[in-house]
């Protein structure tokens, strides 16, 4: 199954908040939907789920128009919400039935997920009596209780301790391996890097970066090297600029290391030779692979 979003545009009143969002995702893969607060991620998700109507653009599944009601969608919103005064099992069954499960199926799936997430002992308890972490697990259970075709997770790891985070990671990985379409929105880039093969970075309502994460990292690392000069060099960035300014440009730092970009006609070998000739012996010298956080800050930061 392939879900394709093409040129989505959405305005609230006079203000256009989405300026042509396009991306695609296939079964068995997770897509990282990234962006700063207010970038347009939630609006995109709500259009996907038919809560908002787009002013223009198309959403298709395997080439046919996408009608959310024809699919089971599991949604974990960033604004967590369930019924605090209702029993855990009762409300999970209710939500599963609203999304098309029969009563028997809803009951079975509810108990299955509560057990899988280690909270089956709270099935009859009111939600408000559970700890924040356990409430978070119940939230995840409500997302998956209808056996969804499309799983949308908005900040799923917030409020979870490391043990519960590991359980959640395993569950998400299972969903991906089970061939589900997973859209994963988070500001915790390490998790996105862990699960997502593809990312879409939205900034101020438009896509500023999209594609396979590995390819993006490779592209961003192209012509860039990371150089560590050791503790003897007080200011490695300044030293490299002073001595190698004609060959390289310092573009950033990562702790004690300096990230440099090779200028035209400069190669790794030439740079290394020049450094050694000037007795600037690097302790570390290698290809630079940017983290997703660095890419995110560069593309969606205030200076972008």
């Amino acid at each position: 199954m392939k879900l394709e979003v093409r040129d989505l545009r959405k305005s609230f009143g006079e203000k256009e908040v989405l300026h042509g969002i396009s991306f695609s995702i296939e079964s068995g893969k997770a897509l990282g939907l990234l962006g700063r607060n207010g970038a347009g991620k939630t609006t995109t998700i709500r259009i996907l789920m038919d809560v908002f109507h787009a002013n223009s653009g198309t959403i298709t599944v395997d080439g046919r128009p996408f009608h959310p009601k024809q699919f089971r969608i599991g949604y974990l919103p960033e604004e967590r919400g369930l019924y605090p005064k209702k029993g855990v099992e009762e409300q999970l069954m209710y939500l599963a039935q609203l999304r098309g499960s029969s009563r028997a199926d809803a009951k079975q799936q509810t108990m299955r997920w509560l057990k899988r997430l280690g909270v089956e002992e709270y099935a009859q308890r009111k939600l408000e009596t559970l700890s924040k972490g356990n409430q978070q697990k119940v939230q995840l259970a409500q997302t998956l209780v209808c056996d969804p075709d499309l799983v949308i997770l908005d900040e799923p790891f917030s409020g979870l301790d490391p043990v519960n985070s590991q359980i959640l990671k395993d569950v998400i990985q299972e969903q991906i391996e089970a061939g589900k379409l997973v859209i994963f929105s988070s500001h915790q880039m390490s998790y996105v890097e862990e699960f997502c093969e593809d990312i879409v970075l939205i900034n101020r309502g438009e896509i500023v970066l999209s594609g396979a994460l590995s390819q993006i990292k490779k592209t961003y690392g192209k012509n860039r090297l990371i150089i560590g000069m050791g503790e003897s060099c007080q200011d490695p960035g300044q030293a490299l600029t002073d001595y190698m300014g004609e060959l390289i440009r310092v573009v950033g730092r990562r702790k004690e290391q300096v990230i440099v970009e090779l200028k035209a006609d400069c190669t790794r070998e030439l740079l290394l030779r020049e450094l050694l000739e000037r007795e600037l012996v690097p302790e570390e010298f290698g290809n630079y692979e940017p983290s997703l956080t660095e890419i995110f800050v560069e593309k969606a930061g205030d200076q972008s």
């Binding site: 809560v51 919103p77 604004e79 967590r80 919400g81 939500l95």
Partner: peptide, 8 residues
């Protein structure tokens, strides 16, 4: 915020 789940 149960409405977030309900309307979807």
């Amino acid at each position: 915020r149960a409405i977030e789940i309900l309307v979807t």
